[in-house]
Computed example of a mutant assay.
Amino acid sequence: MSLIESSVHHNIHELRLQRAPVNALNPELCNALTHAVQAAIEQGAQGIVLAGGPKVFSAGLDVPYLLSLGDDQDALLRAWRAFFNAAHALASCSVPVVAAMAGHAPAGGCVLALCCDYRILADGPYRIGLNETQVGLVAPEGIQALLSRAVGPHRAERLLVAGAMPEAAEALQIGLVDELTDIDNVAVRARAWLEDLLKLPTMPMRETRRIARAAVVDCLRDERIDLDRFVSAWMEPDTQAALRAMLARIGK
């Protein structure tokens, strides 16, 4: 079965992550998402909805897979590069993209959402955020800047240092998401938002969007991610211990 389910609603393409049970982001899923975004544009999409599974949009990077790579830094670099390529595909997409999150979006799931134009989260006990410090990681400067762009620098600092993941109501209040809706209605609302946006004159809307979102693309520049440094830090003993403890807690 394909890792990305694609459906077309007039000129809006919906791309749904389909890696059970929680859409953990391994290289295959990340590469499939990058290609799906490109294919949607080639097929004439005027807007894209990025959706995930029920109750979990995406649980973030596939930590068991990454740990299985041991100290193979080349393999780790390839895995992380696949993720950041997918994030860049969303951030630099030539048409608007809405994250339709019918559930939790921690870590890498939150990053993908932050790369979209608009974020809709299911109303309820669903959490979104960058919890890297909770599992022994340091979010790259560019990823921290993505969060700061959404919620402001001081609030981003508080969230990042604590590794906090606010629930839906607080996420809306602080600007981390743009809208809450019933869990069964998330993708429908995403398409409705795009339909309204696409009523505007195409060229002015797209060019204004391109200028406004240049900062999003800039956050993902290689210099601001510094992948070599990130992967080196991944190998630190305390980081490895924290990651393995996290897996033990959730029964992996």
Rank of each mutant, 00 (worst) to 15 (best):
A169F: 00
A169I: 06
A169G: 03
E170N: 07
A171M: 00
L172M: 01
Q173G: 04
I174L: 07
I174A: 13
I174C: 15
G175N: 10
G175T: 10
G175I: 09
G175Y: 11
V177T: 09
D178Y: 10
E179G: 01
E179W: 04
E179R: 10
L180Y: 08
L180A: 03
T181Y: 11
D182W: 11
D182Y: 09
D182V: 06
I183N: 05
I183D: 11
D184W: 08
D184V: 03
N185S: 14
N185I: 12
N185H: 15
N185E: 14
N185L: 11
N185C: 10
N185R: 15
N185W: 12
V186A: 02
V186T: 08
A187G: 04
V188T: 14
V188H: 13
V188A: 07
V188K: 12
V188I: 15
V188F: 07
R189Q: 14
R189F: 02
A190I: 01
R191Y: 07
R191Q: 13
A192L: 08
W193C: 07
W193E: 07
L194F: 04
L194T: 05
L194I: 11
E195D: 06
L197C: 09
L197A: 14
L198W: 09
L198A: 11
L198Y: 09
L198C: 09
K199H: 12
L200I: 04
L200G: 12
L200M: 13
L200V: 06
P201Y: 05
P201C: 07
T202F: 08
T202N: 12
M203D: 14
M203S: 08
M205N: 00
M205E: 07
M205Q: 00
R206W: 08
E207P: 00
E207I: 13
E207V: 14
R209S: 09
R209Q: 08
R209H: 12
I211L: 14
A212S: 12
R213F: 14
R213T: 13
A214F: 04
A215F: 08
V216E: 09
V217S: 08
V217M: 08
D218E: 15
D218L: 03
C219A: 15
C219M: 12
C219R: 11
L220E: 06
R221Y: 01
R221C: 06
R221H: 12
R221G: 10
R221P: 00
D222L: 13
D222R: 12
D222V: 06
D222T: 06
E223L: 07
E223A: 15
R224P: 01
R224W: 01
I225L: 10
D226G: 06
D226L: 01
L227Y: 03
L227E: 02
D228R: 05
D228Y: 05
D228T: 11
D228W: 02
R229A: 14
F230K: 04
V231Y: 00
V231S: 01
S232K: 08
S232Y: 01
A233V: 00
W234R: 02
W234D: 01
W234M: 02
M235A: 11
E236L: 04
E236N: 05
E236F: 01
E236G: 02
P237N: 01
D238C: 00
D238F: 00
D238A: 05
T239E: 02
